[in-house]
Simulated assay, not measured.
Amino acid sequence: MSHSDHDVDVSTTGPTPSGVVQSSVTRWVLTEGNRWLVAVLFSALAAAVVGVLGWLGVVGVDREGPVTLLLSVFIGGNLTLVPVTITINQLVLSREFGKPHDLRERDEGVIALRDELRALAGVPLIAPAPTAFLRELTATLDDSATDVYDEAAATGSEDLARRAEAFRAEVTAGTDGVERALSRADFGSYESLSAMLDLNSAWLVAAARHLHHDHDEAVAADPFERMEATLRLFNVTRQYVKTLYAQKEIATLSRLLLYTGFLAVLVAAVWMLSFAAPGRPPAVVTSIAGFSLLSAVVFAPLAFLLSYTLRLSTLMSYPPLRNSFITDG
């Protein structure tokens, strides 16, 4: 088999997860934007649509029959959030509950992960903080990439040195992004997870294998084996961090659905009863501006559900380990 059959060039890397979505606006809505702000924008959009249609005379908001019928539908829809929230909480709690042997295996798995990194990094101890673990992992990736380059450059092959330098640059770019994110955000935040997702470990595993295979007789195996082992550890760690992040976001979403759902039902019920008050209903109840604000409130639970689910579903659509095959993200 020829040398070119195994060459992996940095320019051929598949798109990183952040590159899956081409539009920056769409990317902001799906993943990067603050979830509260995105939800507020969705609610504001509902209010704006109702306000514009009311101003154009397409819809009427001052007749008791249609308005109360619509509000009863809103109330019924928001009450269905109760079983939805219970289901969401069951998903979260299912990961917390377990038999003693299951909990022991889970704890032993985390310990084994730390022990593996300690052996790869060549350090006696690793600080217990998750952020310290990630920093040690990225530092080990950098060191391993440097060892791969040094081993390749020592052969005197310009081609091997060039490819190894490109490989090291790709690793450094990824680990620098993770380090910057960790300095700005807490462990488990979306920003730190996004930086980890941007490191294209699938390509790096393939590139390390091709470098070693093409020059198997010229270089030692140890640096390449350490590099691949560290990348695999990074893959597992990234998937674990993604699981913790999803668990935290789902728990947050369930609380928000209860809070906003209660508020939406209360406001809609009071709005309906205002039509039964003696005399004419308050002016705000029959005004377009008032009904627009009401629309923002009753759509708030759906807006939060949409905001959080968009990010979670987008993140979960990324391949979990990305090391057997190079995919498009």
Rank of each mutant, 00 (worst) to 15 (best):
G174I: 07
T175P: 04
T175R: 00
G177P: 08
S183A: 15
S183I: 01
R184I: 02
D186G: 14
F187L: 01
G188I: 00
S189V: 05
L193M: 05
S194R: 12
S194G: 10
A195D: 01
M196K: 04
L199I: 09
L199M: 13
L199Y: 14
S201T: 09
S201R: 15
A202L: 01
W203F: 15
W203N: 06
W203A: 00
L204G: 10
V205C: 04
A206W: 02
A207F: 13
A208W: 01
A208F: 06
R209M: 13
L211R: 01
H212C: 10
H213K: 06
A220V: 07
A220I: 05
A221H: 10
D222H: 07
D222M: 07
P223I: 04
P223A: 03
F224W: 09
R226V: 14
R226K: 13
M227T: 14
E228R: 05
T230P: 12
T230W: 12
T230C: 11
L231G: 09
R232W: 15
V236H: 07
T237D: 00
R238L: 08
Q239L: 13
Q239F: 15
Y240F: 14
Y240E: 11
V241P: 00
V241T: 05
K242V: 08
Y245F: 15
K248W: 02
E249T: 04
I250Q: 12
I250L: 12
A251Q: 00
T252L: 10
R255I: 14
R255D: 11
L256V: 07
L258R: 07
T260M: 13
F262I: 14
V265S: 00
V265L: 02
V267T: 05
V267Q: 02
A268T: 02
V270D: 01
V270H: 00
W271K: 00
M272G: 05
L273C: 11
S274E: 13
A276H: 05
P278S: 00
G279H: 04
P281D: 08
P282A: 12
A283I: 08
A283K: 06
V284A: 10
